[in-house]
């Protein structure tokens, strides 16, 4: 009994000279994986337009109801959010909004340093969320692949899409 206790004491003592596992955070930065679920952003498509089509799927998917938005349309019939609000004091960074998004607009980024002294400052508006880049999915433009007709693009003009068949012309 004494012997085994002494062995464990020695084994613990050897840890005095081992490498520390602590990452001293403010000076040392931890490694964040590319798919880290951190601060939420809204990305833009390659043309610099907003990707978000205000379909409300993220707001529906959100388990804590921290996303709210209002859809509207521009003169080309293209949908976009009039305002888009994420309350980060509620957000649990589950990433379900990112999974629900059909247009890769909403994305989670490897950034977690969003402390605020005032709770109200944690409510991010659309201007705070929108970034200028494309985020994780480069070259993806929802309106270029979706079969929906908007101003400047008619039916059948999307990528990988044949021109619509006029059924009447097929008549014998």
């Amino acid at each position: 009994m004494i012997i085994s206790a002494l062995i464990s004491v020695w084994n613990v003592f050897k840890h005095l000279f081992k490498k520390r596992v602590t990452i001293q955070y403010p000076e040392e930065r931890p490694y964040l994986a590319p798919r880290w679920r951190g601060r939420i952003i809204l990305s833009r498509d390659p043309n610099g337009e907003e990707r978000c089509v205000a379909c409300y799927l993220c707001a529906v998917a959100c388990p804590v109801d921290c996303i709210s938005l209002q859809a509207t349309e521009d003169e080309h019939g293209r949908r976009y959010p009039e305002w888009f609000r994420i309350n980060f004091s509620r957000c649990i960074f589950c990433g379900l909004c990112e999974e629900a998004c059909p247009t890769y607009a909403i994305q989670l980024t490897p950034d977690f340093e969003m402390c605020e002294y005032d709770r109200q400052n944690l409510v991010y508006e659309k201007e705070d969320l929108l970034i200028d880049g494309q985020g994780k999915y480069h070259g993806y433009n929802f309106y270029r692949v979706a079969g929906v007709a908007i101003g400047g693009k008619d039916k059948g003009e999307s990528e990988n899409e044949d021109a619509p068949i006029d059924l009447r012309s097929l008549l014998p």
Partner: peptide, 10 residues
């Protein structure tokens, strides 16, 4: 401090 070092912490 010593406990931390013995447990691979600081």
């Amino acid at each position: 401090r010593l406990l931390g070092y013995l447990q691979d912490r600081y």
